[in-house]
Simulated assay, not measured.
Amino acid sequence: MILFFGLIGILYISNAVYTNIHIHVAEIGVRRAIGMSAGSLYKTFLWKRHITA
């Protein structure tokens, strides 16, 4: 049962990150064009998701 709920949690988190990235494709492009690293970009969107949740 714990593994089942853990799997659901992991799927929820990955879906939230994917959806957030998909919605902000243009913003991601601009940030990458001005030189933001992929790691920093990932952390920024995780942080934005955490704040808005």
Rank of each mutant, 00 (worst) to 15 (best):
R31L: 14
A33C: 07
F45S: 01
V25L: 10
R49N: 07
L11F: 12
H50N: 10
I23M: 03
N20L: 11
W47N: 15
K43M: 03
A38E: 03
H22S: 14
I10K: 01
R49I: 15
A33V: 01
Y18T: 14
M1S: 13
S37F: 02
I21W: 13
F45T: 01
T52S: 06
A53V: 13
K43T: 06
T19K: 05
K43F: 03
N15I: 13
I21D: 06
G39P: 02
T44I: 09
R49M: 15
G6D: 03
T52Q: 15
R31K: 14
V25H: 03
L46Y: 06
A53M: 11
G39T: 06
I28Y: 04
M36Q: 05
T44K: 08
S40W: 03
I51E: 10
A38H: 09
T44N: 01
N20Y: 10
T19M: 04
G39L: 01
S40A: 06
L7A: 12
I10Y: 12
T44C: 09
Y42I: 06
A16E: 12
I28V: 05
G35V: 00
I23G: 08
L11T: 13
N20Q: 13
I2V: 07
S37R: 01
I2K: 07
N20S: 14
N15V: 08
I13W: 03
L46Q: 02
I13N: 13
G6H: 05
A33Y: 02
I23E: 08
K48R: 11
A53P: 09
L7G: 11
G35K: 00
L46E: 01
G39N: 02
F5A: 15
I8N: 05
I8Y: 07
T44H: 08
L7R: 11
L41H: 00
G29K: 06
A33F: 04
I34Y: 00
T19A: 12
Y18M: 14
I34M: 03
I10G: 11
V17P: 02
